[in-house]
Design a protein around this nucleic acid. Sequence first.
DNA 1: GCCAACGTTGGC
DNA 2: GCCAACGTTGGC
Length: 169
Amino acid sequence: MAATRTRRGATASRRYWLFKSEPAVYSIDDLARDRRTCWEGVRNYQARNLLRDDVAVGDGVLFYHSNADPLAVVGIARVCRAAYADHHAWDPSSPYFDPRSDPGAPTWLMVDVEFVERFAAPVTRAALAAEPALRDMLVLRRGARLSVQPVTADEWRAVLGLAGSRARW
DNA sequence: GCCAACGTTGGC
DNA sequence: GCCAACGTTGGC
């Protein structure tokens, strides 16, 4: 596995994540167009803690379309900026407005991600569920609502395999 | 549209 | 600190 310079230290191994997004809000096509975006709007403490403590520059991200047809991992992204204040919390016009977030000690954080690849064909939830190597994958668990989820290296490789991904990691 | 699972809020 | 009520997520 490749080593990468991260907040965890120069020799830390790269980690992998699954980020959910409703394509009606922000899709892999949007990221392919923008090339890079801030991942705003995480409003769950467990997900926030992952962003703050564990998500690092260089980490791999499976881009998952939720509330969609098809439900699928549709591509991959790479973390390109570590956690910083989600300023949308202070924007009254934002759907993510949360006035309880103190500018001096922000409650909510976000990272930036950059586009890596849109899969030639989405790896559907059904395809994930049919893959024995993914039997423990968090996103497949009933009631798994976490929008930022850890993915193991084996799961990462299995999903890229199902996708026929050409991305090198 | 339904509803199970989950997280948060707030009364006590 | 408990827990019932409520709101949201998100698959089906």
